[in-house]
Amino acid sequence: MKTETQTEAGTAVIVARGVHKHYGPIHAVDGVDLDIRAGELFGLIGHNGAGKSTMFKMMLGLIPATAGDIRIDGAQVSGGNFRAVRRTIGYLPENVVLYDNLTGLETLHFFSRLKGVSQAESGAALERVGLAQAARRRVREYSKGMRQRLGFAQALLGKPRILFLDEPTSGLDPEAIRSFYAILRQLRSEGVTMVITSHILAEIQERVDRLAIMTAGKIQASGTVQALREQMDLPLWFTVRTAQADFAAVRAALAHLPVGAIETHADHLTVPCRRENKMAVIEALAALGGRVRDMTVREPSLEDVFFGFSD
């Protein structure tokens, strides 16, 4: 048995092959193949009910797959050496629920005992997620964001090599989201592999190394955000700022180019065009000289890509 799977760019630590999960007639997960490489931040995105959480639970060994095989570091999560595998994993469930009657510190002490980790790590984990001040307060007094951060601190106990984070930023304010991703960057530099789900696509599009789009239990596409954009072949959008008097000149300059329908706004025009025509459009606009006050090019967002694949 091979313990590691070589993929085109790196060693896969999480490998799923032909994974199905059926609940009666419902196919929650329907033939999923995944390779998640060592040290990458991998995003799993999809609508509610697309099968992300089910896939997560199967990867963690919480529920058995109806068919197919999932391995972490070459080992089956629910197999004989599941304890050893589990000790390398940290998990933050969606809408994490912790024990209200315990303090933040007691919560981490409890989980560190279960993970077989020194309780001394608890203080450092609380510090890392910015909860050191609230360590001795009961979880019942915590806000939703604080609970989420405590859940994250729990996932970090034992310095896991693989982190599963299910909607990790739900309930966090923008400042907390920023510091959350700062911790993820730090973890990535330490070589930790992370799998993250989110439905806030704008938030993860600049942050994940690769992602997979899941709809109706299937992986529709996977790769880097840029690769998916190219695969989807969505238009780029030019925003051309100019005086209304010059709108006609801009339209005339672009008339001979294969661009989409130009939209007129109060102080600018928007011009969709295919990627291969981007430079030609820039040259045509540059030829107008000072009549174009400003110009920006927007790449299709992850949201555009996502809807492109899921529609």
Binding site: L62, R86, V96, V97, Y99, Q154
Partner: peptide, 13 residues
């Protein structure tokens, strides 16, 4: 029902 079982089950237990 509270939702804390999944986290418990994900531990080495």
């Amino acid at each position: 029902e509270r939702g804390s079982l999944d986290l418990l089950l994900s531990m080495p237990i």
